[in-house]
Amino acid sequence: MTEYKLVVVGAGGVGKSALTIQLIQNHFVDEYDPTIEDSYRKQVVIDGETCLLDILDTAGQEEYSAMRDQYMRTGEGFLCVFAINNTKSFEDIHHYREQIKRVKDSEDVPMVLVGNKCDLPSRTVDTKQAQDLARSYGIPFIETSAKTRQGVDDAFYTLVREIRKHKEKMSKDGKKKKKKSKTKCVIM
Rank of each mutant, 00 (worst) to 15 (best):
E63K: 08
E63W: 02
E63A: 05
Y64L: 08
Y64Q: 00
Y64K: 00
Y64V: 01
Y64D: 00
S65C: 08
S65P: 00
S65T: 07
A66S: 11
A66G: 11
A66W: 05
A66M: 08
A66F: 07
M67T: 03
M67H: 00
R68I: 01
R68P: 03
R68Q: 08
R68Y: 01
R68S: 07
R68E: 06
D69R: 02
D69Q: 05
D69W: 03
Q70E: 15
Q70L: 02
Q70R: 02
Q70D: 15
Q70K: 06
Y71S: 03
Y71Q: 01
Y71A: 04
Y71P: 04
Y71M: 01
M72H: 02
M72F: 03
M72G: 03
R73V: 07
T74C: 11
T74M: 13
T74I: 10
T74D: 15
T74Y: 12
T74A: 09
G75P: 03
G75M: 05
G75R: 04
E76L: 08
E76Q: 09
G77R: 00
G77E: 00
G77W: 01
G77K: 00
G77M: 12
G77T: 03
F78R: 00
F78N: 02
F78E: 00
F78H: 00
F78S: 01
L79W: 01
L79P: 02
L79R: 00
C80N: 03
C80E: 02
C80P: 01
C80I: 11
V81T: 09
V81C: 12
V81S: 06
V81D: 01
V81L: 12
V81N: 06
V81E: 07
V81W: 00
A83H: 09
A83Y: 02
A83M: 05
A83V: 03
A83L: 03
A83R: 06
A83I: 02
I84R: 13
I84A: 15
I84V: 15
I84W: 14
N86P: 03
N86F: 02
N86K: 07
N86W: 02
T87V: 12
K88E: 13
K88M: 08
K88A: 11
K88Y: 07
K88W: 11
S89C: 12
S89W: 08
F90D: 03
F90E: 09
F90V: 14
F90W: 14
F90N: 04
F90G: 07
E91M: 07
E91A: 10
D92K: 08
I93V: 12
I93K: 00
H94S: 11
H94L: 14
Y96R: 04
Y96L: 15
Y96P: 02
Y96E: 02
R97V: 15
R97N: 06
R97K: 10
R97C: 15
E98Y: 02
Q99P: 02
Q99F: 07
I100W: 05
I100K: 00
I100D: 00
K101W: 05
K101N: 10
K101Y: 07
R102G: 08
R102E: 11
R102L: 08
R102S: 09
R102A: 14
R102Y: 04
V103F: 13
V103T: 08
V103H: 06
V103S: 07
V103N: 05
K104A: 11
D105R: 10
D105L: 09
D105M: 09
D105K: 11
D105A: 10
S106V: 11
S106E: 09
S106D: 12
E107F: 09
E107R: 10
E107Q: 10
D108A: 08
D108L: 06
D108M: 08
V109M: 05
V109C: 08
P110C: 04
P110D: 02
P110G: 02
P110W: 02
M111N: 01
M111S: 01
M111Q: 01
V112T: 03
V112D: 00
V112M: 05
V112G: 00
V112F: 05
V112Q: 01
L113S: 03
L113E: 00
L113Q: 02
V114H: 00
V114D: 00
V114E: 00
V114R: 00
G115R: 05
G115N: 05
G115D: 04
G115L: 12
G115Q: 07
N116E: 08
N116C: 15
N116P: 01
N116L: 15
N116S: 14
N116Y: 01
K117M: 15
K117W: 15
K117R: 13
K117Y: 15
C118R: 07
C118A: 12
D119Y: 05
D119N: 09
D119W: 03
D119S: 06
D119A: 06
L120P: 09
L120R: 07
L120Y: 14
P121C: 08
S122A: 11
S122L: 09
S122M: 09
S122K: 09
R123E: 15
R123K: 13
R123M: 13
R123N: 14
R123L: 11
T124G: 12
T124M: 11
V125F: 11
V125G: 13
V125E: 14
D126N: 10
D126Q: 09
